[in-house]
Nucleic acid binder design. Structure first.
Lengths: 199, 199
DNA sequence: ATGGTTTTATGATCCTAATCATAAAAAAGT
DNA sequence: ACTTTTTTATGATTAGGATCATAAAACCAT
């Protein structure tokens, strides 16, 4: 999102996180801008019984957790490293100053927020009105489109998500995801090759 | 959101919509900035069977449907008048020009998007992991906080939403909402006075 | 290679919210 | 005032996904 030169000039530092480590917790105050240098970070919620909901997964170059920097509220979710990762960390004030001095970057973040809102609007509507198979297809198509922007729709995309992650992204349970995926394969909506899903 | 003087100077016009009329449809291209002058507008989705999901309800002074103006995508939902309404309409280009010339306004919109993202993050997590009563309380608290920003938490708030609207906001069915509200009343989480909910 | 963990898999059972049916009360329209 | 529509209400039944239980396959660390 922000190029390395600007990051370094603004005073960003690289932080390492081990798999399973939390960068911040739901309900805490936002103090930094974060951008993945390498690895994989997820933002998620756990309910009382420990059921997880994954708000989003962020890979190389992606930023996350900016919304609370723009308005006055606490983090609505945790940030947790899926695998060992390195993440740029820039203090809030320096981030906002950077935006102020670079309208272009500011505009880019507005677009990013808008796009994320679009994704959330789709997911919440899906989850509340659609059945499992439909939801899963939506998530798959989202990842297909998002993780590789110049991927054509006709190309087959290898899904790098586990069944459990798909469940946590769609509000379903693993077993339901496994069964739905099988049905979707029968219907020809996707195919499975040594346990990996292709769409 | 944008003051009337700026709106008029930029070339905005007031449009009237009858109850039930659509301002735009899911999947169409965004051409205008919209801001409620008076009345009530909802953004929503319908699934194949006609089940509705309400993305948001917008009243006096609130803007809606801006995200697609900032990034390149189609409307993820419809905009429909809940009651007879009047809405400011400003062409996309003029809106973007206005933002460009007024960094203050631009920043305000970024905050608005951030806040809306916050609300969506909460709702999608609620809907996918929480049970009916929990979800309903969340929506009530959101409306309490949002429709009257200087309302204290200890004040009792009169909910102006129908049971059906609550259902469409939480992904539940009317009957479930009615029953859950009764249970919540027994638990002392809210009270009902001639059919109106107070929280 | 070995042992431990994670992921995928499948059958059986349960439970909760959806669905179906029906109606009364309230609000809105003529 | 009277009809129509909307909203709230309640009981009975159903169904779909969650839950429970168990295990094999794949992956990983040493």
């Amino acid at each position: 999102m922000i190029d390395y030169t600007s990051l370094l000039n603004s005073g960003a530092v690289l932080k390492k996180y081990k798999r399973g480590e939390f960068l911040f917790r739901e309900g805490s105050i936002a103090r930094y801008y974060y951008q993945v240098y390498q690895g994989e970070i997820k933002m998620n919620n756990y309910n009382q019984e420990g059921k997880e909901y994954i708000q989003g997964i962020f890979t190389k170059e992606k930023s996350f957790g900016e919304p609370p920097l723009f308005a006055d509220f606490k983090y609505p979710a945790n940030a947790e490293a899926i695998i060992d990762s390195e993440v740029w960390q820039l203090p809030k004030e320096k981030f906002l100053k950077l935006l102020e001095e670079n309208p272009g970057i500011h505009h880019k973040f507005t677009s990013t927020l808008a796009l994320r809102l679009y994704y959330k609007a789709i997911m919440v509507s899906e989850i509340s009105t659609q059945e499992p198979e439909h939801r899963i297809l939506r998530i798959l198509d989202y990842f297909k489109k998002n993780n590789d922007p110049n991927m054509k729709e006709s190309n087959t995309y290898k899904v790098e998500l586990t069944r459990q992650q798909l469940a946590d992204l769609t509000g379903l349970r693993v077993e339901t995801v496994i069964r739905s995926i099988k049905k979707l394969e029968q219907k020809g909506e996707l195919f499975i090759k040594n346990r990996k899903v292709y769409r």
